[in-house]
Design a protein around this nucleic acid. Structure first.
Lengths: 187, 187
DNA sequence: GAAAGTGATGTCATTGACTGACATCACCGA
DNA sequence: TCGGTGATGTCAGTCAATGACATCACTTTC
C-alpha cells in the first residue's frame, strides 16, 4: 500500500457531490470537502482548479470521445451523419451507474448560478471542439458551426430527458429519439 | 452639492474598465477600483454583486428594451418579424459613444475565462427572456425557442462585427446586414 | 424650526477561496 | 544504497465577499 490512499481526486469528487447535495454549494467549504476525503484543502486545489471544477472534471474526457467519434466517421459521411455518431458516442459516458450521480449533479448545478456559468462554458467549449472537428473533415465553416450547435443542442435536450426518465431507459434510446425528432422537424 | 460626488456606480464602472484593460482582470483588486473611484471597497459591493458584474451592469436594460420591442411589434407580425424588431432595438444601446467602451470591454472579456462565463449566462438569460416574450405573443414553444436562439445569434455576430468595423459604420447597418445574411441562408 | 427619519457611505471584523514556498517521505530506478 | 520523483502536508499570505454598526447631509413631519 502506498503512503496515501489512492485516487484522492475520486474521493474529493464524491465528497464534494455529497456535501453539495446535502448543504448546497455555498453552504459547503473546500476544507469540509477535503476533510471528508481525508486530505487537506491545499490538495483539493492541486486536483481541481477551483471549487466549481470538481463537478466538471470529466467533461474534457466526454469532449475527447465525441471529437474522436467525429473523426472516426467515414470520410464520405455527411456532416449530419458525422455529428450523429459523435452525439451517440456520448452514451459511453453515462452508463446506468452514473445516472444517479448525474441526477444529483444536475440538481446542484441548476440551483447554483456559479455552477450554471461553468456548465455553459463547458458546453461552449464542446461546441467549439465539435465545430473544429467538422472543419478538419473539410466541412464548410457555416455548416460546421450550425451542425456543431445542433449536435450539442441534441445532447443537452437528451441528457435532460434522460435524467428525468425511468431508470430502465438507456441514454442511447433517448439520444436516438431526440435525433429522430430533429429529423422530423427539419423534414 | 451633496455629501458625496454623484454617480458612484458610474465612476466605479469607468475605473474598473480602465484598470482591467491596463492590468488585466486578475491583476486588479476591488480595493484599487474603489480607490480610483473615490469610494471604499465596501461601497463597490453595494453597487455590484461581485467583481465581474461591474462589466455587465446595463445588460438587464438591454434585455428589457429588446423584450419591450418584441412586445410592441404588431400582433399580426410573424415571429421572425417580431424578433427582428427586438434585435434592431438593441441598436439604441450602442451609440457611437459606446463603441470605444465596447471594444475595450470585449477585449477584456474574451481574455478572461471568468468574464466569459458571465457573458455566456447573460446571453442565456437574454435568450430565455426573448423566448418568453414570444410565448407571450402566442408563438408555439418550439418556434419561440428557435426564434429566440436565432435572434440572440444574430445579435452576437453583429456585435462582434460592429466592434471590429470602421468607426463610421453604425451598428444598425451591421444588424440589418446580418439579418439579410440570415434570410439568404434560409431562403 | 427642532426632532425624527432616510439613504448612501465609511469602518471594522470575519470568513473562506485560492496561491506560493518549502518540507516530508514512500517508492522507484540506477 | 542512494539520489530522484511525485503526491501530499504545513504555513503564511492575499483578496473577494459579507454582516454589523456608525456617520451625516438631506428630507419630512409635527
Amino acid at each position: 500500500m502506498g503512503r496515501w490512499e489512492p485516487d484522492a481526486a475520486g474521493r474529493l469528487r464524491e465528497a464534494a457531490m455529497a456535501l453539495y447535495a446535502e448543504r448546497g454549494f455555498d453552504g459547503t467549504t473546500v476544507a469540509e470537502i477535503a476533510d471528508r476525503a481525508g486530505v487537506t484543502a491545499r490538495t483539493f486545489f492541486r486536483h481541481f482548479a477551483d471549487k466549481r471544477e470538481v463537478l466538471f472534471a470529466g467533461s474534457e474526457l466526454l469532449q475527447e470521445r465525441m471529437v474522436a467519434a467525429l473523426a472516426a466517421a467515414p470520410a464520405d459521411a455527411t456532416p449530419m451523419a458525422a455529428i450523429t455518431s459523435a452525439v451517440l458516442a456520448s452514451a459511453d459516458f453515462f452508463d446506468d451507474i452514473r445516472r444517479d450521480y448525474s441526477r444529483r449533479r444536475a440538481a446542484v448545478i441548476t440551483s447554483t448560478p456559479e455552477l450554471l456559468e461553468r456548465e455553459l462554458i463547458k458546453m461552449a467549449k464542446l461546441t467549439a471542439a465539435l465545430r473544429q472537428g467538422l472543419l478538419d473533415r473539410g466541412v464548410p465553416p457555416d455548416v460546421a458551426a450550425l451542425a456543431a450547435e445542433t449536435g450539442v443542442g441534441v445532447f443537452r435536450v437528451s441528457f435532460e430527458r434522460w435524467i428525468s426518465a425511468p431508470d430502465d431507459v438507456p441514454i442511447t434510446d433517448v439520444l436516438q429519439a431526440t435525433l429522430q425528432n430533429l429529423a422530423a422537424l427539419t423534414a
